[in-house]
Design a protein around this nucleic acid. Structure first.
Lengths: 243, 243
DNA sequence: CTCTTTCGCTACGAGTCGTAGCGTAACTGT
DNA sequence: ACAGTTACGCTACGACTCGTAGCGAAAGAG
């Protein structure tokens, strides 16, 4: 056949799933989200746009929600990173503006809340959102914390479990507040708001540090090589869902 | 005679809509949300539960989204208030726990995100959410601010527009973060978390007050905040750790 | 008593869902 | 080359939901 495309090597026998179709489906899903929104998006429509059979969709994804999660997860990986701007405040500000820009896209705007709403009744879907979006983007918080610690803006962690819960708090704080302003209050996340909010975040986080780790000599942590963790987990776009 | 100035005295002529049916429908909607969730809730099912005709539903609400907004708005009015606990921190803590308890209910859990998702493509629905839920609950923030000002924990507003934007920020901050932790991260909003978060909120808000009203020769707050120094200039990468 | 509006009920076309069945295409191991 | 295995496109299907239309009856307003 005139299509000697590179297929991923797998131990499984039989005809492998077309990676081209996978990409075409996710692209079609995003396009359909832009045009139709979550409510009017149908599996048949996505199949027609991607020029695949409707049954192929159901062989790879359990339903609309799972498909859309994968479609928007790509956008998160592509458009969110942590620019190193020299201070915790500036780093927070940068990621807030990036996240706001992502939330202004019609695809993410209409899809994110919908899949989260579905996930409240579907534990498997919630796990998929966690692994595909939440946990992947929480690396920004962990990286930002490490940089702030290296600069001396935050104390090094005495207890790793405390570090994890603080990272969770910061993540909920930034993501939740920006989402709420952008989608519920429906007011713009502009540079001025981002600056004010970042000031709030930095001051608030430092305040909670003083409260929870009061016993530690927090100021000017003794420099210890923080063992720069690799920050780039290889993307796995060919992670075929169970069919 | 139809006097044009007194047209709306008792309403229009003809048979009035049954208020009992209205209540039965909203109760049935909440019950259906508990049992079925947003996705599987249908208008026919609600009509059957409320023992009214399906056409009656469509005579009063444009669709599923509008109906559910009204159904959950009642819960917000009923279960959210601002207890006066003597300090801004305690007030925030109280409202956070109330909001978290409300979000643990199956009705609100599955409905809130869904209607917000729909509202991203339906401006009329977004206005309905604003007037029925958002603006009604924003009074808690305004009231809490007034109490904090009376206690000396926050300075009085020099500019009412600044006060409004600060109230919006606090509202997005609390509601957004709690929603994100409860529904996205799916982790419990317990007393410990609420205490830590409230500390963050109070310190953060005080920090933004200093930053945004710095230009104004504003009346500095009579009560000096307890300890955590605001150490971060908004636009300057000069990073000075607390100490 | 008349006028107006809402009520319950039935029925309908249109659309979506998720699955089953079939024959074919593509790749793997011997 | 061959058999084995899996994915693909296509068609068709029953079940379900949607939102509306039409009807006669009921309930208040003037």
């Amino acid at each position: 056949m005139p299509c000697p495309t590179h297929r991923r090597r797998t131990g499984r026998t039989g005809r492998p799933r077309s990676t081209e179709a996978n990409r075409a489906i996710l692209d079609a899903t995003r396009a359909a989200l832009v045009e139709l929104g979550w409510g009017k998006l149908t599996m048949s429509d996505v199949a027609a746009r991607a020029k695949v059979a409707k049954t192929t969709l159901y062989r790879r994804w359990a339903g609309k929600s799972e498909l859309v999660v994968d479609a928007v997860a790509d956008l998160f990986d592509e458009h969110l990173e942590l620019p190193d701007r020299g201070s915790l405040h500036a780093d927070v500000e940068g990621v807030v503006l990036q996240f706001a820009a992502l939330l202004e896209r019609p695809e993410t705007k209409t899809a994110l809340m919908a899949v989260v709403a579905e996930s409240t009744r579907d534990e498997a879907l919630r796990d998929r959102i966690r692994s595909a979006i939440v946990e992947r983007q929480k690396r920004l918080v962990l990286l930002g914390r490490e940089r702030a610690q290296a600069r001396g803006e935050l104390p090094y962690d005495s207890d790793p479990s405390v570090a994890a819960s603080q990272a969770d708090l910061i993540f909920d704080l930034i993501a939740g507040t920006v989402v709420h302003r952008a989608l519920v209050s429906a007011e713009p996340v502009d540079a001025e708001w981002a600056a004010t909010f970042s000031t709030l975040v930095v001051s608030g986080v430092q305040a909670t540090l003083g409260a929870t780790t009061a016993a530690n000599g927090a100021t000017t942590a003794n420099a210890s090589p923080p063992a720069p963790a690799a920050t780039d987990p290889p993307r796995d776009p060919a992670a075929a869902p169970p069919g």
